[in-house]
Amino acid sequence: MIPINLIQSTAETLMNKAAIEIPEDYLTGLKQAAETEDGDLSSFVLQAMLENYEAAKEDRRAMCGDTGVPRWFVKLGNEAQVEGGMIALEAALRRATASATNGVPLRPNRVHPLWRTDHDNNVGIGAPEIEYGFEPDGAWIDLITVHKGGLFGTDYRMLFPSDGIQGIKRFYLDSLMAFGKRGLACQPAIIGIGLGGSKDICMTLGKRASVLRTVGSRNSDPRIAEMEDEFKELGNSIGMGAMGFVGKNMVIDCNIEVGYCHTGGMPMSVHAFCLSSRRAVARIHADGRVEHRTDPDWFTDYQRRETVEWEPQQEAAE
């Protein structure tokens, strides 16, 4: 049984870390970009960003003044038990979100869409979002917080099988061009592409591809992994860099996730995680141990399963 107080205190720590500490995989990717960048202004911007990450860590202040919209992804091992059940868990995550907003401090970004009511704590109707996943073994619970920023850099389009790979490339380039100018996408970023699903799931897949996968990770389907390499290079060949200045670094990495869709369609979404790529993860074990990390490790074989039944032994033997 995982104590509810431990969940709340861990969640508060995660809120803090996500806002302040740039994840190592993205930092490494951005440092590599800074080394190759030869555009005068783009290069200046990347250097300033690297200094900014240092300043944030030294001062324990948020990396960016727009601290995004905090949300939670919760993954449970099949044997996990939470004190007070899932209602208590949700309450703990809402409390942690509110208290960290005041504590770090974060910007109270969340308002009612019509009445613009602001509770000054990032909590409200449907906020923070809490989404769930499960894994076959284990009594642990993974708490993942993502504070994705920005109103730009995300788009959806219903494509069709006849659009093919060239149609996918075009919509990808369209999204980068549209949101890259003036740097509205806060690039260079981790770009996530969702392919398939229904419209809502297509958006979810693309969002998760950008925020729940790390720089350097590759899809387990080797042909999709090849596309990820190709699309990263394609995005970086536009000639646009940070802030939309002339440069050659637009995409730190490109992650693609797929889901089965209607036979007539090929829906596609594009998402840009920003220069602050705020994500933090902790696994809480049944015995009370807490392990912090920055890789959500969301897309396991189980999450990408294709068959009716899940038979891990058989999979392992293949």
Binding site: M49, E51, N52, C64
Partner: peptide
């Protein structure tokens, strides 16, 4: 004047 980045929030905060 444009900010840099965007998101040199910690530097600006200093």
């Amino acid at each position: 004047l444009s900010t840099v980045g965007y998101g040199t929030g910690a530097l600006l905060g200093r």
